[in-house]
Amino acid sequence: MKKFLRDVSLYLSVILLIGMGISFAASYFLSKSQFYKPNFIVNNLGKNSHYTYILAGSSRGLTTVNTEEVDRNLNVKGLNISMDDTGLPSQFLMIKHYFESGYTADYCVLTLDLSHMEGSKNGLGDNDYRFVSYSDRDYVWEYFRSKEEGIVRPLTLSRYFPLFAFSYYNMELFWPALYSTVNPQFKNRFDSNGNYFYPDQVLPEDQEKEPWKTVPKTLGNPILTELEEYLKSKNCKLIVYVAPYYGTTLSITETGTYPVINHSGALKEAKYFFDINHVNNLGRNEATALFTQSLEDYF
C-alpha cells in the first residue's frame, strides 16, 4: 500500500514537474508576444510612451471608433486598449495595466456598456485570463484573487504555478503561446493601433423591425468613481463614451464630474449595424466622424 502511494505520488510529481516546465516556457513565449492586448501594450509600445488619449472598453470600444482616423483629423495620438467580452472591472484592470506599465495619457475615453452603467457583477470576466503573463504584478494578482471563485483558482495560483492556468485555459493560453513561438508579432483580432472592425454584414431583418425605445439610465456604477480617482492620480481625465446601439437611445443622468459623449441613438439606420450592439464597417466610419467632432470639444 505504501509502495502504491509512493509510486502514485512519484508519477504525479513527474507529470506536474514536466507540466510546470512546459507552462513556464509557454508563459515566457506568451509574455514576449503581442497575441493578446495586455501583451501588445507591454511589448509594442515604446518605453514611457505618451498618448493624447486611450480608448478603453469592450468589443463596442474595440470596433466602433477608428482611432487612426481620429488621430489624422485631430492631429493627436490615440491608442485603443479595448478588449472584447469584457465588463467594466476588466476594463479598469486594462487601464491600470496601461498606466502601471509606465505609459501616460491625457485622456482616457471609456466606452461604457449599457449593462455596466449602474453596477457590475463581482466575478472574473470571460477574457481576464489574457492578463496571466502579468500575474506577478500586484494589481493583476490582487484582481485575480478578489474575483476568482472555486476550490482551485488557476489564475490566482498562476503567480507561482502557471501550470494551473495553462492547463485550465489550455485552448486560450497554451495554444496561443505555441503559436507565438513562431509568430510573436501576431495580434489576435486587432491592428497595430489596437483597433478591430466587423465586416459589412447588415443587421438581420427580424432585429431590424424592432421598435426604437428610449431607456433612462443613471451612471451609478461605483467603479466609475474609483476609476476617475485612479486616473486623477495619473494626471489623466476620464471621458465616458456611449457608442451607438441599434433600437435604443439612452437618456443618461450623469452623476460624476466626468463628461459623457452619448451617441447611443446617433445612428438610426440598420445598414450601419452588424448586430444591435455593434456597428459594421460603414457604421464605424459614421460613428468615428461623430466621435471626432465630440472629442474635439475636449481637446
Binding site: 495553462f166 492547463s167 489550455n170
Partner: peptide, 16 residues
C-alpha cells in the same frame, strides 16, 4: 505512456 497521457490530459483537456 502514463506520463505522456497525463501531460496530454493537462494540456489538451477541455477543463472549462
Amino acid at each position: 505512456d502514463l506520463v505522456f497521457i497525463g501531460l496530454c490530459t493537462l494540456f489538451l483537456g477541455a477543463f472549462k
